[in-house]
Simulated scan of single mutants.
Amino acid sequence: MIDLIVAILRTAAPMIYVAMAGVLAQRAGIWNLGLEGLMITGACAGVVLTEQTGSVAAGLAGAVVFSVILSALLWLVIEKLRANPIIAGLGLTGLGLGGTDLAVQAIYGSEGAVTAPAGIPTLGPAFGKFGLLDVLIVAMPFVVGALWVLLRRTRFGLRLSACGEHPFAARSVGANPARMRLIALLLGGVLAGLGGAELSLGGLQIFSVGMTAGRGFMAFAAVIFGAAHPVGATFAVLFFALVEYMGIKAQLVFGERAPRDFVLMLPYLATVLGIWISARLRGGVPLSSIEMRDG
């Protein structure tokens, strides 16, 4: 049982951080389809800077900084250039995937995997099997709880939700929707950068081109499945991680009788199923919630 919990937490933690970034954006009225790009950027920056400097702290800081810069770019394109948020988000994902590939080739001369000399510190043998968990995984429940408090129990969170749902009304009481969206995207950039760094510097300590493999989109799906609620999105990611774990175990138990391609496909099937169930329970998603504009 402990092995199951540890495996699910290690699989889910990177996506939970990224999903929290999606929750913030969703609350601000932006469906952030750039989460995949932010995640891969954080993963790349984390490993490359750790390899170049020998410091994990520098890698984490770099992952956060680059993700925040891309988040600011997304805000600029959406708010100032008035681009469609969906298209802008997909463009950001393309920029992240292509940019990290180009960066690795420019720095190392090839597309080969980059290995970090060290990873995020873990709890250690004193905690038994839980010692495999690193500090970002341990901090993850506190981050989710803090975000819940921020969004549901503070003036900032209420204003942010108002700007996302009713921007005209929010402006009438003194809130600036554009500024609130900027803050939400920048905070989300911090979380997405940490999620990418957790993926590459957590258990793997390696970066390879395209290593996120759609995890950013799964995190976005968790935001929808969890109704843009921090706890709901977290449980959605845990469900996806459980499905992935069960697929791996099935392959180990049944061997060739469990086709590898089908096993790899299970988390994505669970993602589609989760979105379908979520849409059915809530009667579909209104178009106005997909593209919030404040005129």
Rank of each mutant, 00 (worst) to 15 (best):
I5R: 01
A7S: 14
R10N: 12
Y17G: 00
V23N: 07
V23Q: 10
A28G: 12
G29Y: 05
G29A: 08
I30Q: 01
N32T: 01
I40G: 09
T41H: 02
G42V: 05
A45F: 14
V47L: 05
T50W: 12
S55M: 14
S55D: 13
V64R: 07
V64K: 07
F66S: 08
V68G: 02
L70Y: 12
L70E: 11
L73P: 00
I87G: 13
I87R: 09
L92T: 01
T93N: 04
L95Q: 06
G98N: 04
G99P: 05
T100Y: 02
L102M: 13
A103H: 00
V104S: 04
V104C: 03
A106L: 15
A113Y: 02
T115G: 01
I120N: 07
I120R: 09
F127K: 00
F127A: 12
K129A: 13
L133H: 10
V135F: 14
L136K: 01
F142C: 10
G145P: 01
G145R: 02
W148N: 02
R152M: 13
R152G: 01
R155L: 12
F156N: 03
L160Q: 10
S161C: 11
A162C: 04
C163T: 11
C163R: 11
F168L: 13
R171L: 08
R171Y: 10
S172D: 12
S172V: 04
A175I: 07
N176C: 04
P177I: 04
A178M: 05
M180P: 00
R181V: 06
I183N: 09
I183L: 15
L186T: 12
G189L: 12
L194N: 11
G196R: 07
M211D: 06
M211V: 07
G216W: 10
M218C: 02
F220L: 14
A222P: 00
G226W: 11
P230S: 06
V231C: 00
G232S: 13
L238F: 12
F239V: 11
F240Y: 06
V243F: 06
V243N: 06
Y245C: 08
M246Q: 13
L252R: 03
F254G: 09
R257L: 13
R257A: 15
D261W: 05
I275E: 02
I275K: 00
W276V: 15
W276T: 14
I277F: 15
I277Q: 05
S278D: 07
A279N: 13
V285W: 06
V285L: 14
P286T: 15
P286G: 15
L287R: 10
E291A: 14
E291W: 05
